[in-house]
Design a protein around this nucleic acid. Structure first.
Length: 203
DNA sequence: TTCAGGATGTACT
DNA sequence: GTACATCCTGAAC
C-alpha cells in the first residue's frame, strides 16, 4: 500500500513520527502536484505533554481536531503569520498528533518555489532550495497549506501521505537509514516536557 | 558568522 | 492583555 490511510496513524504517536520520516507528502493543487520527502517530525501527545495544545484533555474550538480520527489533518496558525501541519494519531477521542517540521521537495520544485517566494524567476540557487521547506512555517508556505485544510482526512485528495510513489521513481526509505533523535524545538515554556526526546530527523 | 528584534492574528486568561 | 509548536532582516563582529 503506497498511500497511508487511517490505520497507519492508529498507533503510538512516537512510533508514527519516526516512521513518517522518509515518507512522501503529496499536495495536489489546482496548478499541479508537489511532493515532499519528510525529513523532520515531532510527536505531541496531549495526555502527558505540556507542549501539546490539548494537554490534560483541554478541548477548545482550536484543539477539537486533535481528538478526531487518526489520519486527520490538523493545521493551525502560529505567531500570526505561519501555519503548522500536523497529522492526528492514535484512536479517535485521544489528543495526539505528529508535527511535520521539514522536508525536501522532490517533485514540483518550481511550483513550490512560486508559492514560497511569490513570483518565481526561473532560477533557484542551491541556497534557496535549502531554505525552501526546512521548517514548519516554510514547509506550509511552499505547499500552499493553510487552515482551509484543517480537519480534512489525510487520505483525501488535496493532501495525503505515501510511503512510496513508483510512478515518480520514489521508493520507501531504507530501514538502514539512521534516524536522529533529540529534544523538540520552540517549546521552552513547557517545563519538563521540553526535554522529551520526541523530535526525529534524517540527514 | 551569530544575534536581537519585529511582524502579525488568534486563542485563551 | 499576553503568549504563542516561526521566520526574516539588519547590525555587529
Amino acid at each position: 500500500m503506497a498511500r497511508l490511510d487511517g490505520t497507519f496513524f492508529l498507533r503510538d504517536t512516537v512510533e508514527a513520527a519516526k516512521d513518517l520520516l522518509g515518507c512522501y507528502l503529496v499536495r495536489e493543487t489546482e496548478k499541479g502536484r508537489i511532493v515532499c520527502r519528510i525529513t523532520e517530525t515531532e510527536a505531541y501527545v496531549g495526555a502527558v505533554d505540556k507542549a501539546c495544545h490539548a494537554y490534560g484533555g483541554r478541548m477548545t474550538e482550536r484543539t477539537r481536531t486533535l481528538y478526531a480520527s487518526p489520519g486527520t489533518i490538523y493545521v493551525y496558525l502560529i505567531y500570526g503569520m505561519y501555519h503548522c501541519l500536523n497529522v492526528v494519531t492514535e484512536a479517535e477521542g485521544t489528543a495526539a498528533a505528529v508535527l511535520i517540521r521539514g522536508g525536501e521537495i522532490v517533485h514540483g520544485l518550481e511550483l513550490a518555489a512560486a508559492y514560497r517566494f511569490g513570483a518565481f524567476d526561473g532560477s533557484l540557487t542551491a541556497a534557496r532550495q535549502r531554505i525552501l521547506s526546512n521548517g514548519p512555517g516554510k514547509l506550509c508556505k511552499a505547499l500552499n497549506i493553510d487552515r482551509s485544510l484543517n480537519n480534512l482526512s489525510a487520505a483525501s485528495h488535496p493532501l495525503y501521505f505515501a510511503d512510496e510513489l513508483p510512478e515518480l521513481s520514489l521508493r520507501k526509505r531504507p530501514a538502514s537509514l539512521p534516524v536522529h533523535i533529540g529534544k523538540r524545538i520552540g517549546i521552552d515554556y513547557a517545563q519538563e516536557a521540553a526535554e522529551f526526546p520526541w523530535r526525529f530527523w534524517l540527514e
